[in-house]
Design a protein around this nucleic acid. Structure first.
Lengths: 190, 190, 190, 190
DNA sequence: AATGAATGAGGCTTCATTCAT
DNA sequence: GATGAATGAAGCCTCATTCAT
């Protein structure tokens, strides 16, 4: 594996485990089996590699949502499938997802802004999907933004309480999410 | 106002604005108009004052939920009123709520554990309330834990996207939350 | 002696002996018998303390020249006395004078600019003195700027080759300078 | 142009512009369009290439002075012509002359010694020329060393204030120097 | 000869904490 | 109780130099 990749992987694991400030550059290079200096060949600074992780993650999520947004299926199916797929990605990318969803917001002012920036795109895409559902007359509750709130809030908390903690297998989690989304959609429809 | 209170207030504002690590003890004392040494008369360490803030907040929330848990009203009314009251507290204690809900989880390993610790109590109390609803036959969806997920996730995200950002007045937010809880409860009942 | 003064004195000696880059902050504090951290209570950075030394020196020189510029003596006497006094100051402040006259120019781009900045004032003041001599008809060579060149060049080199090296006693140097200035002034007059 | 020459040229420009310490080996190779490793094929170290520049310059000056020292012209003519030729060389080799005359002295202890070493030869040669003038009875001021001080000081400062700064054309500078040397020699003679 | 990735020593700076007054 | 100067450990980053290809 190439050096840069090694650093990215170590950074991912460590940032996610110990947080941004408690992860030292020296930890990352030690974990990657490299020397301090090597880090700075590939990344300008500790901030730099962190932002790269965040960028990778948000791009992955946005790509997923875009794909689903363009599908012509029934809206409820789209929402459900997108959510389940989303959890699959989260599962594969557990550390980085944690960084993205739970560390970024709290680190400092600059990173909080970055979080809201990246997050806006995600909300927009989800909003468009939900709006389509409203336009098609599927939903009786018409406030798309608030529906997005319920959906995204639910997803976030399930990630935090189940996926991150390895409290349940991916399948068990997907089952639970399946039910959860059903409940939410039922509420929205009636 | 006494010295200790001054320090607490400054810490609250600063931790919430800049995060735990970007808030220096020197910032706190400067903001409070005191000297470095004074800080250590009242608090053992920076960690110490931070934990005190977290403790205060979680106690406030738990007190609120306990109160509602013991009420004999209709469950849906309890949930709705508790949630709205919760937002009123969040509104008053915006900085500390932010610290509790969004910074604590991401800071480091120790604080993440602390978060889950404090949070467990909250979830338990909410769980008990929801269970009562299920037992009384109000809810057709029987998975209390998952209902709590939906409710708590929703509350968290509304705090983050609206209350924290001053995107809307308290009343507007309460109206939106009112609708949101309705939608969720509808889904749970049918 | 107070801490700040101790740091200034150590810095003066060390910068002058070893140059800007070879003088480490750790050298300065070790020499002053203090800890690393203490340095940063009194100075923002290594650059900061260095600039302070330069500022002190240039102010001292300018003050001297201003004083002589306002005297109503015979111009030749003013030039001679100012020069001799100048050497007395250089003698007392040997390290810092060396820094000012010979290190500053060569360190880096920023410091070179600083040097020319500080130096301009010195040249202006000397120029005014010389111009008065020309106006009074004392000098047959009328190019004040070029006369300043000869005088300042001479002073610089005597400092470098005699004073800095402890090659001769102050008195011997002053005698030599006395003669040197005489020779220059003779050339200017005839 | 061969690789070694490329490195020398880049080093010359960069050392002169940014100073010894602010010029990184990476800057030099980047400027020369080569890789880091290549540098060490041609030079043992950064110090090594710097010393080579200094050596080249001092040899050039010494060669010039030797040539003039052996001439059988009238001494004043020798001094004047040597000085003017000297400025022509400085003009062609502006960067390296700057390094030699103004950076070397201030960099660190070792380089200061190197400067005085190289400089001694120059002073000796000039001294011999001036002594001849005294012996021939051309000069009434008999202190050759001090005459050398005036001449060398003047040359140094003109280089610094005019040539380095591109404040005037070579011809204008040569005219000024012509006058300056005249004034000095007049002072020496009478 | 040329490359450029890797090294690691060491410098500057920050900041939580202590302690004498 | 309050002060604030002093501490020193530790982190980030730079950069001259090496070496395998």
């Amino acid at each position: 594996m190439d050096t840069r990749k090694k650093l990215i992987n170590s950074a991912k694991r460590l940032f996610s485990k110990k947080g941004y400030y408690e992860t030292k550059v020296s930890d990352i290079v030690a974990d990657a089996g490299l020397s301090q200096g090597t880090f700075y060949i590939y990344f300008k600074s500790k901030e730099d590699i962190f932002k790269e992780l965040v960028k990778d993650m948000s791009e992955k999520i946005i790509r997923l949502l875009k794909e689903y947004a363009s599908k012509e299926d029934d809206i409820e199916t789209i929402i459900k499938n997108a959510t389940l797929d989303f959890f699959r990605i989260m599962y594969e990318e557990k550390p980085i997802a944690y960084i993205f969803m739970f560390q970024l917001i709290g680190i400092n002012e600059e990173f909080r802004k970055l979080y809201f920036d990246k997050n806006r795109r995600v909300r927009e895409l989800l909003n468009n999907i939900v709006k389509k559902g409203i336009e098609k007359g599927n939903f009786s509750y018409k406030n798309a933004e608030n529906i997005v709130n319920i959906l995204m809030g639910y997803v976030r908390i399930v990630y935090l309480e189940y996926l991150l903690k390895d409290k349940a297998s991916l399948d068990e989690i997907l089952n639970m999410v399946n039910e959860g989304i059903d409940v939410i959609l039922k509420g929205v429809k009636t």
